[in-house]
Design a protein around this nucleic acid. Structure first.
Lengths: 122, 122
DNA sequence: AATATAATACGACGGGTTTCGTAGATGCAA
DNA sequence: TTGCATCTACGAAACCCGTCGTATTATATT
């Protein structure tokens, strides 16, 4: 399976969040964070289409792009890679470091505890 | 702070795990997983030295390299980046996905539960 | 119909990373 | 001390990614 690049991942995130979008819409979103030229965004999305990371349909004179890979699957694969590359595969070490360094609400912590208890009863 | 590349991170992992090493030792380790030429490894380690990711001392005719950045700090920074890029900053979502997808021992799960309880009491 | 506006397509450049070949230096063994 | 094995240094090539300029096409407006 293909590993999306940094820029590709940003675009995927927007498509996952906002649903099918035009290049213009994606580029506008991106420019809320950083400056990117329109044709730069266009080119990347064309490449992604070539790699089959995106599908697209013509709509009048422009294209509407849709993510062709699922958010969960993609996150899962990138997660695996990351755990291997950065934590030498020690996933639980990463979990503990994340819990220690990132704020979490009471509800989130409860949800995680519940999940762990489910895991322990299997 | 500097973001190590893929290859650089592999080398850092070995240095963190095995302690100060020669290029030869690192290259031998790397070749247990994949084929890499000796001078390739050498060059990367020289670059890392230039970036001050590694320190080195002469020992006879060769060099012994040591990681110049801490494992925890580096992992923490890469973790932050990764959570942002891949999970849109939702760290707890990542934690739950990790728990669901990776095997964990009873001891690890207990340790995590204990950690969460500590967090809840602060 | 002519013009302006906005989209697509695509080639090319620049920076960074990895790989490799080769030259030069150094220590060890015969 | 001569020669061999092994190390360092370094330049150059190959590759990927992101950026941009420009040509072309298509729609909308007057």
């Amino acid at each position: 399976m293909l590993k999306p690049t940094e820029s590709e991942l940003e675009i995927l995130q927007l498509l996952w969040k906002n649903g099918p979008s035009s290049v213009r819409e994606i580029n506008d979103e991106l420019n809320k964070t950083k400056e990117v030229g329109y044709t730069t965004t266009l080119k990347i999305m064309q490449i992604m289409h070539g790699k089959e990371l995106l599908t697209r349909t013509e709509k009048g004179r422009y294209h509407i792009y849709t993510a062709a890979i699922s958010q969960e699957k993609t996150q899962g694969q990138l997660l695996d890679r990351f755990v291997d590359a950065t934590f030498g595969g020690e996933a639980m070490k990463m979990v503990m470091q994340t819990l220690g360094n990132h704020k979490a609400s009471k509800e989130e912590l409860e949800a995680i505890k519940k999940l762990i208890e489910n895991l322990e009863n299997n």
